[in-house]
Design a binder for these strands. Structure first.
Lengths: 221, 221
DNA sequence: CCAAAAGTGTTGAACCTACACCCATGT
DNA sequence: ACATGGGTGTAGGTTCAACACTTTTGG
């Protein structure tokens, strides 16, 4: 870590988000090493010398959740000199959206634990990870309003109520059911699958799918 | 530049933008070294070992223009393995907005030339700088619509026509004068100074100022 | 007096918000 | 039968887009 030659360690931290029962959750790992023993943190890792930063973020995501081909976006780069007590580490943060919270959590012996936490109620976090996760949630919240990013948090088929609950959880406010459905259908981002939910103790709901599962800028709400 | 130890060089590139006579311009430097001799590029530099990435961007800006305390925002981090033929360099890009294009350009002997170019009509650029500058202009364009970021491109006192020309140049479309003025005044972001322009061969215009010169999220257009 | 840019209101259309009841299913 | 969430329309207010002429100055 020479000052003279201006080399630095580049790390990536990935804020992994998913909906769980109408609540936005973030995947955190519990650290073993001092000075952050028993602190929680977003999963991260060093960027390899012949690996792009994007590829490193995908790798970290895959190592922790086994998933790939999900929504993954670069968030911000955290470059304060003393953000890591081990030395000069610049972290390029990303956030990932999973369409399903039921992933096998691969708990290596590198970490003491891996768990989902409500994004609105996080434990004490190591490094500047509180700031990073808040940054991710703010970015997601902002993008909900002018893109179709929400597709990243929903499975292939979903009800309009699922969609509305996702919006409400992230925006932190209730939306009017009739106005919401009118707006969503008018935007033409979703199509019915023809199928309906079955086995629930109430009226079956029509299942929809996203016409396109790629990011598009559109006035959503 | 060891693969094993995962060290890398961290650089910062700063896209410096200013309005010039109703046109958005970007400050570029002409390079001397191969393989980019005589190519143009956004000003950049290496991040020092005991310097935050933000501070490095401020330094690069100051070295090229002599200015500080202007709008400066982190843009994106470019981390492809082969983006720089000299070796593994990860670049944290920023963009700066100057309220005035009349700055003394400090042309060191490090570069062959320093000049302003229309952002819509750039020369051949070194590295991935075309992508970086387009990214900056897109970010600026997007933020025009939901923040007061435009203050960064205007001097302390300006006319509503100056403001409108700035919007039009960056958005790339004409705006209706009456609707524009109605909207801007309704937002309450600007106040009159009481002064008027003098010495122009037409009716004097009232000079306005921004009430706050700090970034705020507001539905602007 | 001419050229140039400043300044100023209205109208119709589109959009947004608020709001309450019946429906289909499982238990 | 009852509990649960699914599904549907309208009316009033607000906002937006389109549009042309008069004013004030310098030359």
């Amino acid at each position: 870590m020479s000052k003279k030659y201006k080399f630095a360690v580049i790390a990536t931290d990935v804020v992994i988000l998913a909906m769980d029962n109408g609540e936005l959750k973030a995947l955190l790992i519990k650290m073993k090493k001092k000075p952050f023993a028993d602190s929680w943190a977003a999963p991260g890792g060093l960027v390899g010398g012949s690996e792009s930063v994007d590829a490193a973020a995908e790798r970290v995501l895959r190592e922790k959740t086994g998933v790939s081909h999900v929504y993954l976006e670069q968030l911000y780069t955290f470059g304060k000199v003393s953000r890591d007590p081990f030395g000069r580490v610049v972290s390029v943060a990303y956030f990932a959206l999973l369409p399903n919270i039921d992933v096998k959590l691969k708990t290596t012996n590198e970490y003491a634990d891996v768990r989902w936490f409500p994004a609105a109620d996080l434990p004490k976090l190591a490094y500047d990870h509180k700031e990073i996760i808040e940054c991710a949630v703010n970015r997601l919240r902002a993008k909900l309003e002018y893109t179709n990013i929400v597709y990243g948090l929903l499975p292939a088929e979903f009800t309009l109520s699922d969609l509305q609950k996702t919006y409400e959880a992230i925006l932190g406010r209730r939306l009017d059911k009739r106005n919401f459905r009118k707006k969503i259908l008018a935007l033409g981002l979703v199509a019915t699958t023809g199928k309906k939910t079955i086995g629930e103790p109430n009226r079956p709901a029509v299942l929809y799918r996203f016409k396109k599962r790629s990011l598009q800028n559109i006035e959503v709400l």
